[in-house]
């Protein structure tokens, strides 16, 4: 449905987006991950036709957005990272203004305002001024404003930054509702890996203006390694126990820790029952056992050398 082809942008000779190619299928929810300065917002600006690329193109159903910006504006809703609302106006007045500039007719606009307020759960507060709202409520109206014209594609740029857990959950529910119930295509950028993991089937990881990895959560997880880590918390153990554990086939490495042992094993191998049996044979009390599978955070750290919040 939407595709970027070798999209690049330079400002005063400095390349901030470098050959980004990504795609969104209809009804899909896709994550765009990257630390600050990775080039996510610039990519979004180019996709939404606010910024002309230095090189490359954005295609909507195969048609160039650069040449026909009106096409994407009709079907695209953008939720910017900033609270792009008028503080001195009420929630209703803000939505009325944004609806009018999308040329919605009076009756249609009125029902649409009530619908989007219902979606973001702020219908009861519509007459209150935005400046009296909490950060989370402002972000919800920020989303509502992007939904007024029934967009087929919604781009959300860090929609949950700096808000309370209740509003955050509400926003995540809203994204799920839009994607699953209404079939809206979603491009979701966030610093919060767990949000992207929950909401998106596929994701792109950007750093220094480039897409450095992409795929489903499982595909990205495989990038990291073919190993899992097991942490054993033990009461007391001897060298014989360590040697027996080391002799187990899937175990590749054994290290002593403050509370017990750390084992590196082949990925998804069935070794837990063997470990328990060895412990019983050597009368070692097994207090706790934790299998650590690499998360997307680990993948990101592995790929970029820094965490998402750096």
């Amino acid at each position: 449905m939407l595709e970027t082809v070798e999209l690049s942008k330079s400002f005063k000779g400095k390349t901030v987006v470098d050959g980004v190619s990504l795609y969104l299928d209809q009804g899909e929810s896709v994550g765009l991950l990257g630390p600050n300065g990775a080039g996510k917002s610039t990519t979004i600006s180019m996709i939404s036709s606010l910024l002309a690329p230095t090189h490359g193109d954005v295609l909507l159903r195969g048609k160039s957005v650069i040449k026909h910006p009106q096409d994407i504006r009709r079907v695209l809703g953008v939720v910017p990272q900033e609270i792009a609302l008028y503080e001195e106006l009420s929630a209703y007045e803000n939505l009325q203004f944004f609806g009018r500039i999308y040329k919605l007719k009076k009756t249609a606009l009125e029902s649409k305002i009530q619908e989007v307020l219902e979606i973001v759960g702020l219908r009861e507060r519509q007459k209150e001024l935005i400046k009296t709202f909490s950060g989370g409520m402002k972000r919800r109206i920020n989303i509502a404003a992007a939904l007024l014209h029934n967009p087929q594609i919604v781009i959300m740029d860090e929609p949950t930054v700096g808000i309370d857990p209740q509003s955050r959950n509400h926003i995540l529910d809203t994204v799920r509702y839009l994607n699953l119930e209404k079939g809206t295509t979603v491009l979701y950028t966030s610093h919060y890996m767990e949000e992207v993991e929950q909401l998106c089937k596929r994701m792109y990881i950007m750093d220094h203006g480039k897409v450095i990895a992409s795929g489903t959560k499982e595909e990205l997880g495989r990038i990291l390694s073919s190993e899992d880590t097991i942490l054993l918390q033990l009461d007391a153990y001897d060298d014989a126990f360590i040697e027996e554990i080391r002799s187990l086939d899937p175990v590749r490495q054994v290290e002593r820790t403050d509370q017990g042992l750390k084992l590196i094993i082949a990925k998804q191998s069935r070794v837990l029952s063997s470990i328990v049996q060895s412990a019983e044979r050597h009368s070692v009390q097994l207090i706790n056992m934790h299998v650590h599978t690499p998360s997307l955070e680990d993948v990101f750290l592995h790929l970029t050398g820094r965490t998402l919040r750096d």
Binding site: P80, A84, H149
Partner: peptide
């Protein structure tokens, strides 16, 4: 301009 309201206005096709 700072709060990106203007960008939102441009996105409407105005």
């Amino acid at each position: 301009k700072r709060e990106h309201v203007f960008q939102r206005i441009l996105l409407s096709g105005s």
